[in-house]
């Protein structure tokens, strides 16, 4: 799993507060290229906020996040951190794909148009190139036939697979998943997880906030347990899931697995 060279993601002492409510209280972790990391934690533990901080959908108050060796969201000069203007944030985000709990597909565009919007409008790619990749990605997520459909005409599971394809269309180096199956009917979860499993096998670096313990056990290289805005425990899936060292992890797992 751990390829040689620098890690894909380095997180150092990240803090984030909404007003007086401190959500992240100093998060540190590293993700190697090709690693699949599952992030577990009770609701309100800050795991979704943490994920959104990585592609700077939320700005952080303190700390550093490096993605692919680049400091994210700010610039360091003379030992101080300066916030970057929007233009630089936008450019940095093109390297990071994110899949949301509620899909957030563009409802006024067809499935294919959803997939080519980013590459054409943001990267300035030629349309036919983007269309060709769009069709390829749709086939990859098992929706080759639905290119002309509108999102509302698809089931939740299909929409989420389109959302994954839309993120991949930007050819990101890192994929973030924010509870990708939480809004789905139980019988639709499997299809989405299968697409994610294939993606993991293809060597994509993935950070997945999820409650799917089975997915974490079967696919993840590492599992992180976050509670109260800090990393409580981190390790290989069998360590954290089967032999948790901390009481809080044990309590959480006993609730989820029961």
């Amino acid at each position: 799993m751990s390829a040689p060279g620098r890690p894909m993601v380095v997180v150092q002492n990240v803090h984030k507060a909404f007003g007086r409510n401190e959500v992240l209280k100093g998060i540190d972790l590293e993700v190697a290229p090709g690693e699949v990391m599952c992030i577990l934690g009770p609701s309100g533990s800050g795991k979704s906020t943490f994920l959104r901080c990585i592609n700077h959908l939320e700005r952080t108050d303190r700390g550093r996040i490096y993605v692919d060796g680049e400091l994210n969201g700010c610039r360091e000069r003379n030992g101080r951190l300066y916030e970057l203007p929007d233009r630089d944030l936008c450019r940095a985000r093109t390297k990071i794909g994110i899949v949301f709990q509620h899909f957030n597909l563009f409802p006024h565009l067809t499935v294919l148009e959803n997939l080519i919007e980013g590459p054409v409008r943001v990267k300035g790619e030629p349309r036919d190139l983007a269309v060709a990749r769009g069709h390829r990605l749709l086939a990859q997520v098992g929706l080759g036939e639905r290119a002309a459909a509108y999102p509302r005409q698809l089931s939740g599971g299909q929409q989420q697979r389109v959302a994954i394809a839309r993120a991949l269309a930007m050819e990101p180096k890192l994929m973030l998943f924010d509870e990708p199956t939480s809004a789905l009917d139980p019988e639709l979860v499997g299809d989405v997880l299968a697409v994610m499993r294939d993606l993991a096998r293809s060597g994509m670096t993935m950070m997945v906030v999820t409650h799917e313990i089975g997915f974490a056990r079967g696919v993840a290289h590492s599992v992180v347990f976050i509670d109260g805005g800090v990393v409580v425990e981190r390790g290989a899936p069998e360590e954290v899931l089967d032999h948790p060292r901390h009481e809080r992890t044990r309590a959480f797992l006993s609730k989820v697995l029961s």
């Binding site: 959908l57 990071i96 794909g97 919007e117």
Partner: peptide, 8 residues
Amino acid sequence: DAASSLGM
């Protein structure tokens, strides 16, 4: 959020 995440 989705539009921003695509770098828009």
